[in-house]
Design a protein around this nucleic acid. Structure first.
Length: 574
RNA sequence: GGUGGGAUAGCUCAGCCGGUUAGAGCGCAGGACUCAUAAUCCUGAGGUCCCCGGUUCGAUUCCGGGUCCCACUACCA
């Protein structure tokens, strides 16, 4: 039994996430966690809200709340929405909680002890009326290159030129619109990443063979350009206070650590929260000197996050020279687009997680988003594709199969697994299908190829329909009840198996199926033992004869054209 | 601008470390069946593999150039 630590990229606190965020980290991480649990491994699945930074402060102001109130409320909302999608986090923490604060301050202390932190002075735009320093992108003005009047301080959206906010003509604060802005000196801590270049490269070299192309190419790009010392503090009030050996750091009383420094540390912090709440031991997951040396650590994230996880966070971990667990496998995703364009909060383009749950149960979305996972390139969400996938895969192939078999068993065999008869050529064909397909399904999950895992799952369900067409127990029943019994017995075993392999992707539906067949919890694990060909027929004859079964409630409802039309109007698709 | 990723059937995507007829699902057309949620099963039609060159006996695949889309570019997270 392996021990697997799984983290999903932390959703930012600033509002409910859209389907793209779900599809690009939290959902595939959950599917992987569920697969590994069903495979009998010891899994710890950790996530949290990432709560610090300027956007959280501004959103709180807009909402008329303190930042603490705002974050607490948003955290609860995101947690509840996550539960609606059956995200099976062992803990869903908060980066603003004490464990992350303590760990972040600890890492800063250790890194400074190792000579990896300096104080430096830099210049930054200060908005007098907003009473705050402004990140580059919150300063707007006229582009010196093209004259566009709403260029951001980091980049002009009109001509694409990279800018420094100091270069903008007629600069103003995008927070308030005030033109009362000035350049001020400010003092910050810098993490000397340049000194860690060789160690990080050695780390990436050692892991590269286990990482997909998307991951390694991004990591090497940063390394080849050379790591740059970066500031890890900010002039904000909401965040982890800057301390030195437990006391406020002189000159930094009104500063906090930069959100990107503390956010990945929250993977550990959230685990500490979990341990404190449950009495578990967190160090055996994170400290290689305290039992974590046999842990495989797997991270899930969108492609925009890869550099921070392959380079920046390893700088923190490696620089500490302490025995922390480093990432082993890193699964990165491209974007889920909305009809070929981007999901957009400001333009209200696309569906957000809470809205999705108002329309349909979580399993519907889980299936579509995994079957269309943006693994190798950006992928477009369309209502038409969503409707087709749900109606065909879930309703027709799986739902109808479960229904036709269980109803027939209820009607003709008294709601029991029928005994009698002997398996023949059709059952042998089905066993061969399983012998070919189940190992592939498992291989896809182990390789974290989720789109292929969904396709293989569907193919196995479809093979069940093909089998029952070949064996045609309703025809056999007229001449031989025993022969019909073989078909329905095999069919019921397939229903059970289909429920088991459905667990990672559509867990709520899988539970309905397995509960209806009275399958004990202990018998719901993935068929991992990879028997030789002669072993697969046993999978088709596992349920004891005479065992009572129920017809489950209708598992899915079809999506109608009228609904697609309504949703397209409401959410701006097309 | 730089770096990286992508472009394959009407749609969403596999695949090709060079090699007979380029695949899947959906959609579409025809047929079969009737246990089942008008579901299922079988068959079929549909492609200048973005463009231009090069290497090669042979290129969708490798190389160069171009076009378009996307990400990152270190102070959004």
């Amino acid at each position: 039994m392996a021990r697997i630590l799984i983290t999903s990229a932390l959703p930012y606190i600033n509002g409910v996430k859209h389907l793209g965020n779900l599809a690009g980290s939290m959902l595939p991480a959950d599917v992987y966690a569920r697969f590994n649990r069903a495979a009998g491994h010891e899994v710890l699945f950790i996530c949290a809200t990432d709560e610090h930074g300027t956007p959280a402060e501004l959103a709180a102001i807009e909402a008329g709340q303190t930042v603490a109130e705002y974050c607490a409320e948003q955290h609860d909302i995101q947690k509840r929405v996550g539960q609606g999608f059956s995200l099976s986090f062992d803990w869903f923490g908060r980066s603003s909680n004490r464990p992350n604060r303590d760990l972040t301050q600890h890492f800063a202390d250790v890194l400074e002890d190792k000579g990896l932190i300096d104080e430096r002075t830099s210049k930054q735009v200060y908005s007098v009326d907003d009473k705050r320093f402004l990140p580059d992108r919150y300063v707007e003005g006229t582009c010196p290159n093209c004259g566009y009047e709403k260029a951001r301080g980091d980049q002009c959206d009109n001509c694409g030129t990279l800018l420094d906010p100091i270069d903008l003509k007629n600069p103003y604060s995008s927070v308030s619109g005030s033109r009362n802005v000035e350049i001020r000196d400010t003092r910050h801590l810098y993490l000397l990443q340049s000194k860690m270049q060789d160690k990080v490269r050695a780390f990436v070299d050692a892991r590269a063979k286990d990482w997909p192309n998307l991951t390694t190419s991004i990591a090497y790009k940063w390394l080849d350009e050379g790591l740059i010392d970066r500031s890890i503090t900010r002039d904000l009030s909401w965040g982890v206070p800057v301390t030195r050996n437990g006391s406020p750091r002189p000159g930094f009383e009104n500063k906090v650590f930069y959100v990107w420094f503390d956010a990945p540390i929250e993977y550990i912090g959230s685990t500490v929260e979990w341990a404190e709440a449950t009495g578990a031991n967190w160090e055996r997951w994170w400290r290689t000197d305290k039992g974590a040396d046999d842990v495989t650590y797997v991270e899930f994230m969108g492609k925009d996050n890869v550099a921070f996880h392959t380079v920046s966070f390893p700088v923190t971990i490696l620089g500490s020279e302490e025995s922390w667990k480093l990432v082993d496998k890193l699964k990165a995703f491209n974007w889920l687009n909305w009809y070929g364009g981007k999901f957009s909060t400001s333009q209200k383009r696309g569906v957000f997680m809470d809205q999705a749950l108002e329309l349909l149960p979580g399993d519907y979305w889980r299936w579509y988003l995994i079957a269309n996972s943006p693994e190798s390139s950006d992928t477009a969400f369309t209502w038409e594709g969503f409707k087709a996938g749900i109606n065909s895969d879930l309703n027709d192939v799986l739902g109808n199969f479960v229904n036709r078999i269980t109803k027939y068993a209820a009607a003709k065999f008294d709601g029991k697994v029928p005994g009698g008869g002997e398996p023949g050529e059709h059952e042998a064909w089905m066993a061969d299908e399983l012998a070919a397909r189940l190992p592939q399904l498992i291989a896809h999950y182990e390789a974290m190829e989720f789109r292929k895992a969904a396709a293989e799952t569907r193919a196995i369900w479809a093979a069940g329909n093909e089998y029952i067409t070949k064996s045609a127990p309703w025809t056999a029943y007229k001449s031989s009840v025993d022969q019909a019994a073989v078909g329905i017995r095999t069919g019921l075993n397939l229903v059970s198996l289909f429920g088991i392999i459905a667990q990672p992707i559509i867990p709520e539906t899988a539970k309905k199926i397995l509960d209806a067949l009275n399958i004990p919890e202990a018998n719901r694990s993935f068929p991992l033992e990879k028997p030789d060909k002669s072993g697969y027929p046993a999978l088709l004859n596992a349920l004891p004869a005479g065992m009572p079964i129920q017809v489950p409630p209708q598992l899915f409802t079809k999506i109608e054209d009228a609904q697609v039309a309504e949703w397209t109007t409401r959410f701006g698709g097309g």
